[in-house]
Structure formats: structure tokens, C-alpha cells
Nucleic acid binder design. Structure first.
Lengths: 292, 292
DNA sequence: CCAATCAATACCTGATGCGTATCAATCATG
DNA sequence: CATGATTGATACGCATCAGGTATTGATTGG
């Protein structure tokens, strides 16, 4: 059997007239007669009751009419949805994000992408920064959102967001009340930071900022997540320089103070160069538009 | 697009190997390569990522794989169900029956047909005898079950059931207690019958039975339905000769008495000669088997 | 560096679908 | 009742296209 025969059959069943059906199909009448006869032959079923003056569907033909229309419609749907899949308009995109991204760039980015590609099944997963590489390389995630980091070969990175560092201080700290806070004011204060391996670029940024203002930060303790740093500052264990967006946390015992002259900290997208998920291209494009 | 291309595509997507897929399809490898390329060309979508050493599905190809399998399966289903429709194994059969049939031949006949053709949608409708002809000729019903009758051209009849007439008497009637009741005993009794036009053959049978036993029945009143006759007998308005199966009615004030020498009354199937509902043929066959 | 594997390409042949012309059957109309 | 019109089926020729064989090009593994 052939899809052409199904199309011919449906046209004839719709019009019940060989000549008019052939005209609709842009063919002449004889080939239509032959194809219908071949179809009936192959099925072993008489689909039309014909006299030389009129054509009508048999019971089996009527049933086949419904089936054929359904099949042709699903072929059409299959073609369209496959093309949509290739354009990245359908399918699934697995986004792995770090907690820092969840507080800053993730929400607007996801919102924009979701508006543009509403039919894509977005699977968001929060991951630890150290897990990200493996997830992307093994194909368990399509794209990650994180600080710049030491990237292995095969992974691509593109920055999509930057914000300044700001100081976070215990609410009852003397500097918390000071107007015109500077980086230099933090010299000698006990710092809470994170291991360089966790986010090398950010780590370099924080340390470098202190050095640029003439002091080496006295590191009292290290923890991995920025949020944990803020929390420990609130507990009075020290001070820190963190991305500005962490200020949304609103902890009662920690205050955020903008500091002039702090560098911008960047976050960006990370993805496997060989990943051919079409949704990834759409996501990268949406992110590009977001930057602009 | 072509169903062949879908079959080729599914074979290749299943095996991910041009040579093996071609072998499964009983063709050589080059035509398979060309058909797949043509399919991709027509869709405008790359379905496979090929190197000269390995083949794998793209995201769009994987989606199309599901769709194509579903389409091929529905084509197969459509063919089978259409063939089943032509064999009368599916579809709908509208059976119109008279009340007399409901008490006798209808239940076992329907049971047998339903066992044999479980997928047919049986639509049973009780009708008045005088409506039957129009329903069958107009195509609102496929087959009727009734007494033999004056049939117009275009309708066919075939007997499927016969039973003797028996006498029905008021419970307190003198004859109700008599052993060895004969037809002759009913001479002179007021008869309750029905118009000859309602069921000519049955009417002829009842009147003829009386005449054969030497008397002309004294008809006190006429009504259309056999059940109504029995009911009026129970009310003491007269006696009658009715098909034996009416005895199932179990009215408290009417008794049924078998009478030796009464003729057999027949019921049968009626259908339009031009009705090409395949289920009708199955029903006629089942009825034929029921008779034997 | 060579042999093996695998998909793509070139070229040919046979099958098949389409178009034109025609036939057979039925219906409408004078 | 006869004739023309309508409609589906058939005959035949031609173009297209699918499949087969032979070959190429690319990659991999020993």
C-alpha cells in the first residue's frame, strides 16, 4: 500500500465521483480508477459500490475512509512535529544550575526561553558546581549555568550576566553603619570565602579585589556555597565579598553594602560542544538575546 | 512521502546500520541510502547523524521514529479492521423485532449471534409489526424478526422458528379444567383475535385451524398484539389460540392449554434484498445455524 | 601502512504510474 | 423509441523512479 493510494481513496470517498476527485488530485480519471482498483485488490475488500452512473461507499469503505483520514492527518502531524523538533521548538532541555544562578540569572533567562519555546519540556535541576562538568560531558544535562571555571576540553562557555561584588557584614558590625564603605575598610576583618577549586574565576576576583586595595584577606573559614557564606556572616563569624544578587536573601542578621570599585562577577552558560539537542541552540539564542 | 520510505526509515532506525536494515527489507544497501536521503530532503530535516563508521538518530529522527512506527501500526490496524468490517465481524447491526419475537426466538438468536460476532455493535429495537416494512426499506433497520406477512417487493423472508398454537383461557373458565382439550371445544366461545392485515399468515393459521375442526370462530374483538390478546383473555373477555411461547407471560387469570392437532406458527427474518451491510450476512448465517 | 568495513555515488534496467484515446453502460431528452 | 451526454473501465505509449551491480571515499583496527 501507498500513501498516494490513501490520498486518492480519501478524495474519491469525499466526492464520490471519479472525475471530480481526479480533478482535485490534479490527475486524470483513468489513473484514479486504476489506483482505487489496486487498493481494493490489495485489501481484498470492495470499498466502493459503483454503477456506471454513481459511486457509493460500502460499509467497509466507509470504515476505511475514517481510518485513512486519520492516518493522513497523523502523517501530516508527524512531519510538522519532526520539523518543529529540529528547530528546537519541541523536545526536552535539561538545565543544570548552581544555587548562585538561581538567585540571579536563572529566573529571567528561563522566563524568556519559556515564552519563546513554550512546547519544550524544560527540566531544571539544581546541582553542585563540582558536578556540572560530568553531567554535561556524560549527556545527563544539556546546559549548565554557573560562574566561569576551569573548563575541560569539549565544553563551551559563554557569559550571559555580570554583577558587582558587594560586602556582606553582620548587622551589628561597626562597618555596617559606616557611610561610604570601601574595600580597604575590610582589611584585617576575618573573611569567609570558598575553596579556589569551587569557582576559580570568582575566587580570583575576590582575592584580587582585596589585593588591588592593598591587603591580603585574612581567611577565617571556607565553605562551598555563597549562600552558606552569607548565613555564616549573619552568625557573626566574619565578613565577605559576594555577588550582589545574594542580597535578595534578606537574612535578619546580615547586611549587604555596595562597595565602589568592586569588579564585576560573571555567570554564563556551559554546554558540551558535541551536544546536538536542537533545543540547546534555541536556548543559546534566547540567552544571547537576553544579554542584549 | 511514501509508506515505503517510512518502512525503510523504521528499519534503519531500529538497526542503525544501512547494510543490516537493507537485508531486513530484502533490498540492497544503495536504494536504502537513497530513500533515506530523499525522505530527509523532503522533510528538510536531518534524521540520522552518520559517519562512515556509525549511524545514530538525531533528536528529530528519534521523534520521527516514534511517529513512523505509530503510523505504520495504524495502517496495519486499518487494513485488518476494514477486512473484518467486510466479513461482518465489526460494524453495527440494527435488529427490529416484534413483541412476539421477544418472547420466543429473539433471545437465543441474539445470544448465538453475539457469541459469534462479539465486536459487532448490536442495536435492538422493539417495533410494531406494521412499522417493520418501512424501517427495512428505508434502511433504518437491517433485519426484522416477525411472523410471516405480506411482503412488498425488495424484502426477503426466511423462517427460523416454529412452534404450535395453544389455547389460552380465563382461569375460571369451565374448559380450563377439562382434560384432553380439543380445538373443537372452542366452537361457540367468543374469540379475541387480531386484524388479518397485522400478520396475515398467523391470522390464516388461527382461522384455518378452527375451520379445519368444523367451526367458524365467533370473533368478539380484535387487537394488534398477541400479548394484549392474552391480557384480555385473562380479563375474561374471551378465548384465543396463540403461539405457545406466550405462555411465559404467567398472567394469574389466564391459563395456557396445549391442544393436539394445532398447526405450527412460524417466525422468521425479514431484510431488504439490497442491504449490503456485511453484518446482515453474518446474522443470516448465524440464524441458519440456529435452525439446524 | 594495509586490509576491512560501511555509507555514498554512478550507471543501467525494469517496473510502475500517468496521460490520451477509446469503449461500454446508463440516463436524459426530444 | 432513438440519440446524445455522462461516467467509469480499458488499451496503449511514455516518462519517471525504484532497485541492482559496480565502484568510490572515508574511517578504523591490526
Amino acid at each position: 500500500m501507498d500513501l498516494r493510494q490513501l490520498r486518492y481513496f480519501v478524495a474519491l470517498a469525499d466526492t464520490l465521483h471519479f472525475g471530480r476527485a481526479a480533478a482535485l488530485l490534479h490527475i486524470s480519471q483513468p489513473p484514479l480508477s486504476r489506483q482505487i482498483a489496486a487498493l481494493e485488490e490489495e485489501l481484498g475488500v470492495l470499498l466502493f459500490k459503483r454503477t456506471s452512473r454513481q459511486v457509493e461507499l460500502t460499509a467497509a469503505g466507509s470504515h476505511f475512509h475514517d481510518q485513512a483520514r486519520r492516518i493522513l492527518a497523523s502523517v501530516d502531524t508527524a512531519v510538522r512535529s519532526t520539523q518543529a523538533t529540529e528547530r528546537g521548538e519541541r523536545g526536552a532541555l535539561r538545565v543544570a544550575f548552581t544555587m548562585a544562578a538561581a538567585w540571579s540569572v536563572l529566573p529571567p533567562l528561563i522566563r524568556r526561553y519559556g515564552d519563546q519555546f513554550p512546547a519544550v519540556d524544560l527540566q531544571l535541576a539544581e546541582v553542585l558546581p563540582r558536578e556540572l562538568n560530568d553531567l554535561l560531558i556524560s549527556g545527563q544535562a544539556d546546559v549548565g549555568i554557573a560562574f566561569p571555571w576551569q573548563r575541560p576540553p569539549g565544553l563551551e562557555y559563554r557569559g550571559v550576566f555580570a554583577e558587582p561584588l558587594c560586602a556582606v557584614l553582620p548587622a551589628d558590625h561597626a562597618l555596617a553603619a559606616k557611610a561610604d564603605l570601601t574595600v580597604g575598610d575590610l582589611a584585617g576583618e576575618p573573611f569567609i570565602t570558598f575553596p579556589a577549586a569551587t569557582a576559580p574565576a570568582l575566587h580570583e576576583l575576590v582575592i584580587g579585589c582585596c589585593r588591588a586595595h592593598g591587603f591580603e584577606p585574612r581567611i577565617r573559614l571556607e565553605t562551598h556555597l555563597q549562600q552558606t557564606i552569607v548565613n555564616l556572616v549573619g552568625e557573626g563569624l566574619g565578613v565577605s565579598l559576594v555577588p550582589q544578587s545574594l542580597g535578595k536573601m534578606q537574612l535578619p542578621n546580615a547586611v549587604f553594602r555596595p562597595v565602589p570599585g568592586t569588579p564585576q562577577v560573571e555567570q554564563g552558560l556551559i554546554w558540551a560542544a558535541g551536544n546536538d539537542n536542537p533545543c540547546l541552540a534555541g536556548f543559546l539564542a534566547a540567552a544571547q538575546a537576553f544579554v542584549a
